[in-house]
Nucleic acid binder design. Structure first.
Lengths: 366, 366
DNA sequence: ATTAGCACTCGCACCGTTGGAGTGCTAATC
DNA sequence: GATTAGCACTCCAACGGTGCGAGTGCTAAT
């Protein structure tokens, strides 16, 4: 069967209505709608066809129709109007995002809470992967007789440090020499190169003169590098999940919250997803906990290299166009602000040209 | 009316039974219990008295009795047997806690997840307040032409750092001089002193020679100090809250999760609580979200000074004695391990003398 | 003072009923 | 041939009634 023009129109109306009301929509209400000048009976026939084609379902015989995941997919791919944020909305986002802080992680965290606040959904934001971050500088500083602090500075401006106990006495001179040797050996390497490459071996022979200091330092160096690779996952609006009718079933809500609070697993799942804006609807999600919701992720970049992600989880009947617009603007802004921070910025963050709405059907803002 | 010996015995039996079964307990089941050799009728009379006195309630006429908050309070204060952990249990906790990591925050986080895993409750753990932490060392290090890294090292071994942009060119010599001046001025001060005292004013005049470098550095110094004061709150087992029947009401579960995920507010509430082991039961909690649950917090110390807290939230019918024992052991262990890390440790962590159980009634282990 | 006995209460689970919303089908209409 | 009006039908959700079981409160006997 073909998806005629009229079928599409009806399907779109059903989806829009259902997104607004969350109620199964019947033929009568549809026929009263602006632009749909067919009788309920006609619409019923079309709906029956659409159901046969898999775009609609039927909670029970005497209920209205509900869009299926397939319908949302069609909607997102083809029917959806790309909504443009108003100047005011953009201003709010930009202001809130650059509020006070300049700290990397802090900004990302901010982005997550901002996103959940605007959308009323559960949101999260991931700090960038730093595998590609380049080591610039390694420094060892005395603290007291047996303690020194190691710090690693990367090109992106990230500083990691760690206090460590020395099992052998040290002098400032030796410490300094060791710092310089390490910097010489690792400068310009990426963090993951430093971790995997076997520089340590031939390096240790070099510094055997330092009477065991390297043995104290190197393991900590490796640990610190590993820590630099850790990505943080921030989350907000967790309780918004209860707005979704499916999750008024406590067992489901529980397993959802369980999944979300497993940060390591969640991080892994998010990293695996493709970059750019990616929408997965209902059963398209691999996790059974997500089979009733949609997941939208968007990636941002720093210097076009390190890539982090933000995302939202909400009901399949969410305002896709509005939300993707918000996320798009947000990631543009994030990528922009990190470019700035890294020093060599050109100022053109988040291009402002108001690329007008092309598709004018299906307003879905409340 | 007086709380006779027999009333106490019955009350205790009711509480124990209810903690186990979560079902209202009736007179018949009680009379069949070991040690309670009274007829159901007698027990019913006593129960009626206990209810009048406020220790029991009645979900409805034809249901068994349920202990009130007042009853749990009595139980915790007087009836409860102090349970001692077995050697095995202690070993498990100690091992898991000192697993791999030596990092401060990491250990606390570990403690939270360990606690929730053992108790099957929602748990949290707070890193110590660091107001009293003493500044040891301030260092400014060059990164590139316009970027320097500032690091602050404290007596407790904590290192904080921050990368900052300089608006004026700097030389390494000047940077070094500034580091030394700052260290000279702040060494030995606590973090909160450094923040509140007005050293900055007369300090800035000192270094006017440094042609504005101080203007770039000082605000960042203050911010970093502020950051050092931040306490982190880790949480685990959030979804365990769904085990509590009261929270199968979605609205309640929602507001609970909302409360818990407001980390700043939660932190404040926890800090306000008295130190030591503190149990608050049901309506004793100020927050309405907690009026159906009990909250147990315990504090740990580092060098007897900096104080953090761990805690659990669970049903009022929880195994108080077991759980307080676990928390006691855990905090002892935490305090002990931080003493070690700070360097000048005497080795006596978590005193091991097996102070035997004094009270032998009411076993409440499953 | 304790206990046995019994009437009573109440929640819960299980019907059967009713009403309304919405469908599917058929026959009439454009 | 496509559209529509009409109508019988289905199903859910809400409501009220009923029976059962657990547990109480009271009274009278021990």
């Amino acid at each position: 069967m073909e998806l005629s023009e009229r079928k599409l129109k009806i399907l779109q109306a059903i989806i829009s209505d259902y997104i607004k009301t969350a109620e199964p929509v019947g033929s009568r209400t549809l026929s009263k709608q602006e632009g749909l000048s067919y009788s309920p009976a006609t619409i019923r026939n079309e709906m029956a066809d659409l159901e046969e084609m898999g775009y609609l379902t039927h909670p029970h015989t005497s209920a209205g129709r509900v869009p299926s995941d397939k319908a949302y997919r069609l909607y997102v791919n083809e029917l959806m109007a790309k909504s443009e944020l108003s100047k005011e909305e953009k201003a709010i986002i930009a202001n809130r995002l650059h509020d006070t802080t300049v700290d990397f992680d802090e900004t990302i965290k901010h982005a997550a809470s901002l996103l959940s606040e605007i959308t009323n959904l559960t949101s999260f934001a991931m700090t960038p992967k730093k595998n590609e971050d380049v080591i610039k500088y390694i420094n060892l500083l005395p603290v007291d007789e047996e303690t020194v602090v190691m710090m690693i500075v990367s090109e992106s401006g990230k500083v990691s440090n760690r206090a460590l106990k020395m099992s052998v006495p040290y002098t400032e001179d030796k410490l300094d020499l060791l710092s310089k040797t390490m910097t010489y050996n690792y400068k310009g390497k990426t963090v993951s190169q430093a971790l995997t490459n076997n520089i340590i071996a031939n390096f240790e022979t070099d510094v055997v003169a330092m009477s065991g200091m390297a043995e104290d330092v190197m393991p900590n160096f490796m640990k610190t590098l590993e820590e630099m690779l850790n990505v943080n996952l921030y989350m907000d609006g967790l309780s918004n999940i209860f707005d979704i009718p499916e999750y008024s079933d406590v067992a489901k809500a529980r397993s959802f919250i369980e999944m979300m609070t497993q940060k390591e697993e969640m991080t892994k799942k998010l990293i695996e997803r493709d970059d750019g804006i990616l929408i997965t609807i209902g059963d398209e999600n691999k996790d059974s906990e997500l089979s009733d919701v949609s997941l939208i992720t968007a990636s941002y970049s720093v210097d076009g290299k390190l890539v982090g992600k933000i995302g939202v989880i909400g009901p399949t009947r969410m305002r896709y166009s509005k939300i993707t617009s918000i996320m798009e603007y947000l990631t543009d802004n994030l990528s922009g602000s990190f470019k700035l921070e890294s020093g060599d910025a050109d100022e053109d963050q988040a291009s402002e040209d108001p690329e007008e709405t092309q598709n004018d059907e299906s307003r879905e803002d409340s």
